[in-house]
Structures are given as structure tokens and as C-alpha cells.
Amino acid sequence: TGIVNVSSSLNVRSSASTSSKVIGSLSGNTKVTIVGEEGAFYKIEYKGSHGYVAKEYI
């Protein structure tokens, strides 16, 4: 489990790349469930599926 550490919002992406499609966003202080790691990204549970967020903001 981690907490989103941004002042505005954090993009949730379809894969572990900054060039991948943005599938949603999370507000600061949102609790997320981390299910894996891939490079500079965490794989998280997101809306019944999975998404990826940059580690530096969790």
C-alpha cells in the first residue's frame, strides 16, 4: 500500500512508460494498493483492473 504524494493529480498509465496511454488520474493523498514493480513504475490496482504510476510520486 502506498499514498499518492502530489499536490494536484497523478496520471495512471496503461503500461510502465511515460509514453503509454493515460487511463485515469489519482488525487494527492489517495491510498493505492501496489501489486508489482516495473522499472520506475509501480503496478497498482485501479478500477477493477491494473494501472501504472511513477514510483517517485508514491
Rank of each mutant, 00 (worst) to 15 (best):
T1A: 09
T1E: 13
T1P: 09
T1F: 09
T1L: 12
G2H: 07
G2Y: 04
G2N: 06
G2A: 08
G2Q: 06
I3C: 10
I3Q: 08
I3P: 04
I3W: 12
I3T: 10
I3H: 09
I3R: 13
V4H: 05
V4P: 04
V4C: 06
V4I: 09
V4E: 03
N5S: 11
N5P: 06
N5F: 05
N5C: 13
N5E: 07
N5A: 09
V6P: 08
V6D: 06
V6N: 10
V6A: 12
V6R: 09
S7R: 12
S7T: 13
S7M: 09
S7N: 12
S8R: 11
S8K: 13
S8H: 15
S8M: 11
S8P: 13
S9V: 10
S9I: 11
S9R: 13
S9Y: 11
L10A: 14
L10N: 03
L10H: 03
L10T: 12
L10R: 04
L10V: 15
L10M: 07
L10S: 05
N11Y: 12
N11H: 15
N11K: 14
V12S: 00
V12G: 00
R13W: 15
R13Y: 15
R13F: 15
R13L: 15
R13V: 09
S14A: 15
S14I: 14
S14E: 15
S15I: 07
S15H: 14
S15N: 09
S15Y: 07
A16W: 04
A16R: 03
A16H: 06
A16Q: 03
A16S: 08
A16M: 04
A16V: 06
S17H: 11
S17E: 08
S17V: 07
T18G: 13
S19T: 13
S19A: 12
S19L: 11
S19P: 06
S19R: 11
S20G: 15
S20T: 04
S20F: 07
K21V: 12
K21D: 13
K21A: 15
K21Q: 13
V22C: 07
V22Q: 04
V22N: 05
V22D: 04
V22M: 06
V22H: 05
I23S: 02
I23R: 02
I23V: 07
I23Y: 03
I23H: 02
I23D: 01
G24D: 03
G24M: 05
G24V: 03
G24I: 03
G24S: 03
S25N: 11
S25I: 15
S25C: 12
L26K: 01
L26R: 01
S27D: 12
S27T: 12
S27G: 11
S27A: 14
S27L: 13
S27Y: 10
S27F: 10
G28N: 15
G28M: 13
G28H: 15
G28T: 12
G28L: 12
N29I: 06
T30Q: 12
T30A: 12
T30E: 14
K31H: 10
K31C: 12
K31I: 15
K31W: 14
K31R: 12
V32A: 02
V32Q: 01
V32R: 00
V32C: 05
V32D: 00
V32W: 02
T33C: 11
T33H: 11
T33E: 07
T33K: 12
T33R: 10
I34Y: 02
I34E: 00
V35A: 05
V35N: 04
V35M: 09
V35R: 05
V35W: 07
V35P: 00
G36A: 08
G36Y: 04
G36E: 06
E37L: 07
E37K: 06
E37F: 06
E37V: 11
E37C: 09
E37R: 05
E37G: 05
E37T: 08
E38G: 03
E38S: 09
E38A: 08
G39R: 04
G39P: 02
G39K: 06
G39L: 06
G39I: 03
G39C: 07
A40E: 15
A40W: 08
A40F: 10
A40H: 11
A40N: 14
F41L: 02
F41T: 02
F41V: 02
F41A: 02
Y42R: 01
Y42L: 07
Y42W: 10
Y42N: 02
Y42K: 02
Y42F: 09
Y42V: 05
Y42I: 04
K43H: 06
K43Y: 07
K43W: 06
K43M: 11
I44Q: 00
I44C: 01
I44M: 01
I44F: 02
E45A: 09
E45G: 04
E45R: 08
E45D: 08
E45I: 13
E45P: 04
Y46E: 01
Y46I: 04
Y46D: 01
Y46C: 05
Y46V: 03
Y46Q: 01
K47T: 05
K47Q: 14
K47G: 13
K47A: 11
K47F: 11
K47R: 10
G48L: 06
G48I: 03
G48E: 10
G48Q: 07
G48Y: 06
G48K: 06
S49C: 09
S49N: 10
S49A: 14
S49W: 07
S49D: 09
S49V: 14
S49F: 10
H50K: 05
H50C: 08
H50I: 15
H50L: 11
H50N: 07
H50W: 15
H50V: 15
G51I: 01
G51E: 01
G51Q: 02
G51D: 00
Y52K: 00
Y52H: 02
Y52R: 00
V53H: 00
V53W: 00
V53F: 01
V53C: 04
V53D: 00
V53N: 00
A54H: 09
A54N: 10
A54Y: 14
A54F: 12
A54E: 15
A54M: 13
A54D: 11
K55N: 03
E56V: 10
E56C: 11
E56T: 07
E56W: 06
Y57A: 11
Y57I: 04
Y57H: 12
Y57Q: 08
Y57C: 13
I58F: 06
I58N: 02
I58R: 01
I58Q: 02
I58Y: 03
I58G: 01
